[in-house]
Computed example of a mutant assay.
Amino acid sequence: MRLKSAVAGLPSRTVTNADITALIAEHSAAGFTGDLDDALRKVEYYLKFAGSDSRRWLDAGERPIDLLRTATNKALAQAEVRPQDVDLLIYTGIGRGFIEPGGAYHTAAAIGLDNAHCFDILDACMSWTRAVQVTESLFRSGQYRTALIVNAEFNLRSGGVVFPHLFRIPELAALESIFPAYTLGEAATATVLTAEEHEPWEFRFASRPDLAPLCNVTIEGYEGFCDPSDKLAANGVGYFTSYGFEMHEHADDGFAVFERLDPPVDEVKALFTHASSKRYWQGMADKVGLGSAIHHVFDRTGNVVSASVPTAIASALEQDLVRPGDRAVGWVGSAGMSFGAFTFVF
Rank of each mutant, 00 (worst) to 15 (best):
H117C: 03
H295K: 14
L211T: 12
N235R: 05
G185D: 14
A152P: 01
A110F: 01
V237R: 04
Y222D: 08
R2L: 15
P324R: 11
K4L: 03
L175K: 13
A328Y: 02
E80Y: 02
N235Q: 05
A335W: 06
N303K: 02
M284A: 12
Y239L: 08
H296M: 15
R204G: 05
D286Q: 10
A50R: 11
M337A: 05
A341Y: 14
N17P: 04
E44V: 08
G185A: 09
V305P: 06
E186K: 02
G185R: 09
L40D: 12
A328P: 02
S242Q: 04
I94E: 04
A206H: 14
A22N: 11
N235S: 02
W331L: 05
A187S: 13
A234L: 00
L68I: 00
N17S: 08
A6W: 01
R145V: 09
P200S: 06
W331E: 03
L3R: 09
R56W: 06
A251C: 08
L211M: 15
V161D: 13
N303A: 02
S158I: 00
M284R: 14
G325M: 05
P64F: 08
Q319M: 06
G236C: 15
P83Q: 06
A270D: 01
Y243N: 03
T301I: 13
V329W: 00
H296W: 10
C215A: 04
G330D: 06
N73S: 15
G95Y: 00
N151F: 01
D35T: 09
L193T: 11
I149R: 03
D266F: 12
A30M: 06
I94W: 01
D53A: 07
T135H: 07
L122W: 01
E220G: 15
L138N: 00
F339A: 13
S229D: 07
D326K: 00
I169R: 12
A314K: 02
A77I: 11
D114E: 13
A256T: 14
F245K: 14
K4R: 05
A234V: 01
I65W: 00
G236Y: 05
S127Q: 06
F255W: 12
W57K: 00
S52T: 08
Q143M: 04
F258Y: 15
P310Q: 04
F139L: 07
I294A: 11
T14R: 01
D252I: 10
F339D: 04
G244H: 03
L172T: 14
S141F: 04
E62H: 09
T135Q: 07
A212T: 08
S338A: 09
H165D: 15
T107E: 03
L23S: 01
R157N: 09
A131G: 10
A293C: 14
R13V: 04
V86T: 09
E318R: 02
A206K: 10
V150K: 03
L156V: 12
R63H: 11
D253S: 11
C226R: 04
S276P: 01
A104Q: 02
A314P: 01
P164G: 10
T129F: 06
F272N: 03
P209G: 13
A39H: 10
S141C: 07
A341F: 10
